[in-house]
Computed example of a mutant assay.
Amino acid sequence: MGAALSQYLEKRQTDLKSVAERIQAAVLGAGKATNEYIQGDLEAAKQAQDAAKSVQLKDAAGGTDVEGASVGSQDSRRT
């Protein structure tokens, strides 16, 4: 069982690294955006969100770039 799990993880290492990088970017971007919202800097918050969304992933099938998904409407800000 251990050998099979080791082989699986070895073959999926690139995919798992990509997922981990995306999660890290999302968490850091969300934290930075939240801090900017708290400080009232909506333009900086938008830039932090855009930076987190712009992380490029490789799809598992063909190795092509997959653009990050939107996490909300840009017009959802209160004015």
Rank of each mutant, 00 (worst) to 15 (best):
Q47K: 12
Q24W: 03
A60G: 13
G72N: 04
A60C: 10
G63V: 04
L42I: 04
E21S: 14
R77L: 10
Q47G: 09
Q24F: 03
E36I: 06
Y37H: 13
L9E: 10
Q24Y: 07
D15L: 15
A30N: 04
L16K: 06
A69F: 06
Q39W: 13
A51H: 11
K17W: 06
D41L: 12
G29L: 00
A48Y: 00
A61P: 03
G31E: 06
A30L: 02
D59Q: 10
Q47W: 04
L16G: 07
A60E: 09
A61H: 12
E10M: 15
G62F: 11
T64P: 06
A30F: 02
E21N: 15
K32V: 09
A69H: 04
D65W: 12
S73C: 03
I23Q: 15
K58T: 02
D50G: 07
N35R: 07
L16I: 10
K53A: 11
R77I: 05
K32I: 05
E67Y: 07
Q49L: 11
A69S: 14
S18E: 10
A25P: 04
E43Q: 14
A45T: 00
S73I: 05
T64N: 15
Q39G: 13
D50E: 10
Q13R: 13
D15F: 15
D75Q: 06
A30T: 04
G40Q: 03
Y8G: 14
Q74G: 14
V71Y: 06
I23R: 15
A20D: 12
G62R: 10
G62A: 12
E10V: 13
K58D: 01
D65N: 15
T64I: 15
A26Q: 02
D75I: 02
V66R: 04
Q49K: 09
A69W: 06
A61S: 14
Q24D: 08
L57D: 10
D75Y: 08
Q24P: 05
Q24G: 06
T14S: 10
V66C: 10
I38C: 14
G31Y: 02
E10S: 15
T64G: 14
G68M: 02
A61Y: 12
Q24T: 12
R77H: 11
S54I: 01
G31C: 09
A45V: 00
L28C: 10
Q39V: 15
L16V: 11
I38M: 13
K17Y: 09
E10F: 15
A52I: 01
Q56I: 08
G72L: 02
D59P: 01
E36N: 08
I38G: 10
S70F: 03
L42R: 05
T14C: 08
S70E: 03
Y8M: 15
Q24E: 12
Q24M: 12
R22C: 06
E67L: 11
K11V: 04
A30V: 03
Q74P: 02
A25D: 01
K53W: 01
T34F: 09
S70H: 02
E67H: 08
Q74S: 12
L9V: 09
D59N: 13
K58P: 01
Q49E: 06
A30R: 01
Q39D: 13
Q47N: 12
A61W: 09
L28Q: 09
A61L: 14
A61D: 13
G72P: 00
